[in-house]
Design a protein around this nucleic acid. Sequence first.
RNA 1: GUGGGCGUAGCUCAGUUGGCUAGAGCGCCAGGUUGUGGUCCUGGAGGUCGCGGGUUCGACCCCCGUCGCUCACCCCA
Length: 421
Amino acid sequence: MEIFRAPIGTHDVLPPDSAWWERALGAFAQLARRAGFGLLLSPLFEDVAVFDRGIGATSDVATKEMYVFEDRGGRRLALRPEGTASVVRAFVQHRPVVPWKVWYATPAFRYERPQAGRYRQHHQVGVEAIGSPDPALDVEVIALAARFYEALGLRRVRLLINSMGHPECRAAYVGVLGAYLGEHAAELCEEHRTRFAESPLRVLDCKRPACVAVTERGPQLPDHLCAACREHFAAVRSGLDSIGIGWSLAPRLVRGFDYYTRTTFEFVSEALAAAQNAVGGGGRYDGLAEQLGGPASAGVGFGSGLERLRLAWEAEGHHGEADRVDVFVVDTTGGSHATVLADQLRREGLVVERAFDQRSMKAQMRLADRSGAAVAVLVGPAEAAQGSVTIRDLRGAAEGAQVTVPASELVATVRERATER
RNA sequence: GUGGGCGUAGCUCAGUUGGCUAGAGCGCCAGGUUGUGGUCCUGGAGGUCGCGGGUUCGACCCCCGUCGCUCACCCCA
């Protein structure tokens, strides 16, 4: 019999590692709600065109990394490769009151060769705010991301920001950049030497030393913005300053999706190797809703990869903690008392574990110890006969001490002893 | 899609120039006399040596293929 494995590039997250995921998702949900973002649930797959038109039919993600399939009705669908396009599609479909602020947590799929920090299915949390060009919204979105990383305990995450302008001023810049690259074509890397004209902006993103040397001396995006875009960008930066969020200007930061306008940003972890150091990113996409058939609507958002965040978190020296157990019920009379006692204690809000399969007392005590429980509640023939329970401290100063009390005093006694640590 | 490294118990790995019923540590299970965990001691379960083919008297060890894992490039979270 063949043993099945998770498909290539995918992975299971099991306890105790999954405890970190619970904390991360919980922290994100709380921050998003505090900032007025509501949860959006949307389908994992969409008409391929949503992504083609959304993230740009020429981007790598759309051309060679999408999980495209046909359903039984002949519809061409794709598993979502990122979060934003689906949200904007939902916006266009439902036309909610603006600004529409939503958060999401979702898997994302990209058909590419897996490596460290890169998977075929990864998971993102993010927010989108659609319907307003106000730079205060850019600030709110970026701040949410920054506070999220802080909440996770990440200290070595840096914010890089840039502005790509609106379509007109960007087009003007692309013209200037293209001309400049043409003059220095011979100095570019092998790939871009002949291909720079197809997409001059992509050259800015090239990490090869040759291209970096040329582009860092060339015309810079922020210097070619129109007055309105310049003003918007300045407002975003001063907004970040006003709440103490540090940033670095990254004039050559051009993100992989075609929909970005004006503000673009990326959070990178200094604890991770440069190849996969981006833990989150986003920006404005003021033309995207229109692209998907909706009204002209500004929008801004970000997404963050949970696997990357976990890697960064570990690289910063954090380590996982097991799920906490408050009480372990040991029952040597067959297990029926444990059923009743565990239920009673759980209804009191305590985290309660117990043994199964009628194991020996020694085995149950060993499990109790390994569970990390503060106290064990023991029921044997003697307790069962007299309607009492024995409560034993498993850790702390009183470790090893135990008392036998009437069953009616179970909750009070456990509370008193379990909360000491 | 291209290239490098690796594939032996649940996990981390040993396994001598191919040759006795394939090992260790950890983990797991059970004991160490009277109902009580952590340390210690003893014992036990658990492996088609990724899979298929080839060379050989004989292969975990050599050759070929294949699948998988991993790292890198591209790009991204």
